[in-house]
Computed example of a mutant assay.
Amino acid sequence: MRKYLADAQVISEIETVRTALPTWVVSTAELVELAENAERAAVHSNLETLDRSRKLIVEVAEWQQKLSEWQGLDLSPRLKAELRILKATLDASMDEANGAAGELKLFD
């Protein structure tokens, strides 16, 4: 059986993504809800919430980049499949988060 040397490096870090993904998805959904509610009520969100939202977007973007880099490594087919699934989930989450960030003007 062929050895995929890069697997060990990725597996040692990917647990962070596996563990954090549910939290990121829930936080993203909450961010979208916050943006919709703020727009409807024409009110501003508190600064602490906005700061947490910015940090979420930055953190997920950093992991997206890392997953993209890992996809270029010589990895086992199973691990490549998992990376594609995780990356697709993060991409969808970021699309939602970026839309909400635009409505909230998080990065203006």
Rank of each mutant, 00 (worst) to 15 (best):
K80G: 07
L56D: 01
K80M: 09
D51T: 11
L75V: 04
E69N: 14
S45M: 02
E62N: 10
S27H: 06
L56C: 01
T89N: 09
Q64I: 05
T28N: 04
Q71L: 12
T49K: 06
S27R: 05
A41P: 00
L83C: 03
A41I: 07
T89A: 07
T28P: 04
R52H: 09
A61M: 07
S68M: 04
E59N: 10
A61W: 01
N46P: 08
E39K: 12
H44T: 06
A61L: 03
R54L: 05
A81Y: 11
L86C: 02
R84C: 12
N37D: 14
V43L: 03
L75H: 05
Q71H: 05
S53T: 06
L75K: 00
L83N: 01
W63F: 06
Q65M: 06
N37Y: 13
S27K: 11
P77S: 04
E33Y: 13
D74I: 07
E48D: 11
V58A: 13
S76I: 08
L50D: 01
V25P: 01
N46C: 08
T89L: 12
S45G: 09
D51L: 13
L83R: 00
T49N: 05
A41Y: 07
L50M: 15
I57H: 02
V26L: 10
I57C: 10
R40D: 12
V43H: 04
Q64E: 08
K80S: 15
P77T: 05
S53P: 05
E33L: 14
S27N: 08
D74Q: 14
T23N: 15
K66I: 14
L86D: 05
Q65W: 07
K55T: 14
S45K: 02
H44E: 15
T28R: 07
L75N: 03
L73V: 03
E59F: 02
L83G: 00
E69D: 09
P77Q: 10
E62W: 07
R84M: 12
S53V: 09
W70H: 04
V58C: 09
S53M: 05
N37V: 11
K55I: 11
V25L: 15
E33V: 13
L56K: 01
D51M: 11
E48Q: 11
L50T: 05
D74W: 11
E62V: 12
V43R: 03
L86P: 00
E30V: 14
A38F: 00
E39Q: 07
A35G: 06
E59P: 06
S53F: 02
L90C: 13
W63K: 04
R84H: 10
H44K: 15
A42F: 05
Q65E: 08
Q65I: 06
W70N: 01
L86K: 03
